[in-house]
Design a protein around this nucleic acid. Structure first.
Length: 380
DNA sequence: GACTCGTGGGG
DNA sequence: TCCCCAAGAGT
């Protein structure tokens, strides 16, 4: 069969002697520098799994307090499976990517119902659980069950692209196999979990995105890109799109029973969390409209509430506060705050949502953007 | 395969 | 201010 040279079948293997020397040096580095983290106290799959889910796209320092609190609230997988959704989301409040929390409970119920409380022990089986993809499956299988399998996250892409000068675009999912095939033979068969955790520690402390310090370690001779001065050319990735700007209004309606909140739909952005009623400016604009003035927008919002809910808002007005800006992964909300005080005899039951006093809010899961708006109001 | 889905921190 | 980054997965 004719072989062809392409970027997808380059040879990234080390010689047996180089590989052996690398493994020794790498595991020695880990033994001397490994971080003492809460989820490294033992290898119970529940604890390791919880940490891996929380650590998805989230820094260690952010996760630690959430991890401790979550484990105290839901000590076992059975507790989590049986948890009320409101408590679940309140415990996750502020950590972001809220589908992780819902998938966590889904997977807990899979373990309890489908696996009789026993964890599957291979990456292939683990990947069938909700919220567990190729990275997390590899991490749990290697750490908890000793399977020789890579756990390829952002650290692994960075470390091994620089180690072996792999120039495949890490943002392209089809290139994942290139890394898998390159990493697999480097895993010491007696310490696969430690190897994958060493990649995390080395990647986050030494082989960092900015200001890497590989030259200060005994690993430097193995890093091909360091040796030829091309370290910062790796990993190769295409840059992300900018956030789409979105103009929003937050409508703060106060009554004798508290402030009106609405629970967001069970899917999509900030699913199941509560906010002040939010209205996207785009929904106020007719196709043939010129750009609306602030006065026209206020009139449109009053009309919107009247049409949607049959409600007449009295004294709806701009707060005069600076808009709240909140950036998501792909959206940038600029939020104008509107306020209204309802008359004492207003029909509160007609309003869509829930009236919460400050004391009641303690148990309600609020996204950070909502807390930002509340903080802005408090400065008034 | 391209989008969607949060938040906090650093240069 | 803006951009990138941080232990990705689901659709």
């Amino acid at each position: 069969m004719q072989s062809t040279i392409s970027s997808t079948n380059k040879n990234y293997q080390m010689t047996p002697s180089e590989r052996s020397a690398f493994q020794t040096a790498f595991m020695t580095w880990y033994d001397e520098n490994r971080r003492d983290l809460p989820w490294r106290q033992n290898q119970e799959p529940y604890r390791v799994w919880l940490s891996e889910i929380m650590l998805q796209q989230t820094q260690v320092q952010t996760v630690i307090p959430y991890y401790e609190r979550f484990l105290a609230t839901f000590p076992t997988v059975a507790d989590l499976a049986a948890a009320p959704e409101d408590l679940l989301m309140k415990t996750w409040e502020g950590l972001g990517y809220y589908s992780r929390a819902r998938n966590l409970q889904k997977a807990a119920r899979q373990i309890v119902d489908d696996y009789d409380g026993h964890w599957p022990t291979t990456a292939a089986e683990l990947e069938k659980l909700a919220g567990i993809g190729p990275y997390t499956a590899g991490a749990i299988a290697s750490i908890c069950f000793g399977e020789v399998v890579p756990a390829i996250d952002g650290n692994a892409f960075r470390v091994f692209s620089r180690l072996l000068k792999i120039d495949a675009d890490i943002t392209d999912p089809k290139n994942r196999k290139i890394f898998y095939d390159a990493i697999l033979p480097l895993i010491p068969e007696d310490r696969p979990g430690d190897f994958n955790q060493a990649v995390m520690d080395f990647g986050s402390q030494i082989c960092t995105a900015k200001n890497p310090t590989i030259g200060d370690t005994a690993l430097a001779p193995f890093f091909r890109s360091y040796q030829d001065g091309t370290l910062l050319d790796y990993p190769v990735k295409t840059k992300k799109a900018k956030q789409k700007p979105v103009a929003m209004f937050a409508v703060v309606i106060r009554s004798q029973n508290g402030v009106l909140f609405q629970k967001r739909p069970s899917t999509g952005l900030l699913a199941n969390l509560s906010t002040y009623p939010l209205v996207a400016a785009e929904t106020l604009q007719a196709d043939d409209d010129e750009l609306l003035t602030p006065e026209e927008q206020l009139a449109r919002i009053e009309a919107h509430f009247q049409e949607a809910y049959g409600l007449k808002l009295q004294q709806l007005h701009e707060s005069g506060l600076k808009p709240v800006v909140h950036v998501f992964t792909h959206l940038k909300w600029t939020i104008t705050i509107l306020q209204a005080q309802l008359a004492a005899d207003a029909e509160l039951a007609f309003f869509p949502g829930q009236w919460y006093t400050e004391a009641q809010l303690v148990d309600v899961a609020l996204p950070t953007v909502q807390k930002k708006i509340m903080a802005r109001l408090a400065t008034d």
